[in-house]
Design a protein around this nucleic acid. Sequence first.
DNA 1: CATCTTGGTAAGACATGGCTTACCAATGGT
DNA 2: ACCATTGGTAAGCCATGTCTTACCAAGATG
Lengths: 104, 104
Amino acid sequence: MVTSDAVLDALGNATRRSIVRVLAGGPLTVGAIALELPVSRPAVSQHLRVLEQAELVRFTESGTKNLYELDRAGFLAARAWLETFWSESLAQFAALAEATQEGG
Amino acid sequence: MVTSDAVLDALGNATRRSIVRVLAGGPLTVGAIALELPVSRPAVSQHLRVLEQAELVRFTESGTKNLYELDRAGFLAARAWLETFWSESLAQFAALAEATQEGG
DNA sequence: CATCTTGGTAAGACATGGCTTACCAATGGT
DNA sequence: ACCATTGGTAAGCCATGTCTTACCAAGATG
């Protein structure tokens, strides 16, 4: 379980958002990510640790290569936090869901 | 039109998130917000400017009092950014909306 | 008009965070 | 066995951001 604080802190950095954007295209190794960005590999590595703790990213080791990919958990946490302040959209969604159930 | 970068940068700070949380209870003046938080009024004032530029907050002047309240625009921008990386939920929502239209 | 309230701004102290280079560990390949 | 690849960590530099106090402007209140 991630705290929304961790997620929002993680997303509050342009380089980390760039990493997320790059990973949106599919899983990549650390070095491959670094090639896409104007920062060094260690910088990417450090950012990945933050993103991982925020459950925005996870990785699988295969040999010496670490393959990173997006993790939905963090994004869901962020969305949940946002909707806390938006009872309106929350109500809309609930109404929509209810309408759908009526229809089905 | 806000950039999602501005919004996420703004939300990437614990004090600013506290301000948002406080304002979720309803509009407040700058001084009133500061009383709820462990920081000085100037600090709050500075944060409010950042939040305002991110369209997470807006205010109306009435005399010397500035009444701040949440602005949905920034939150929508943040949500839109998140959903960019979540074609899945986006597709679900679209399907849901379509189902609803069929029903109505 | 005098004074209190309200809040924005300026200047500066301080901490934190992001980045780099250098280094080390571990696995893969020849 | 040897070397290349891959990536995490350490140390340290530097910029930026966050906070404080002090100050000032503008409107309310008596």
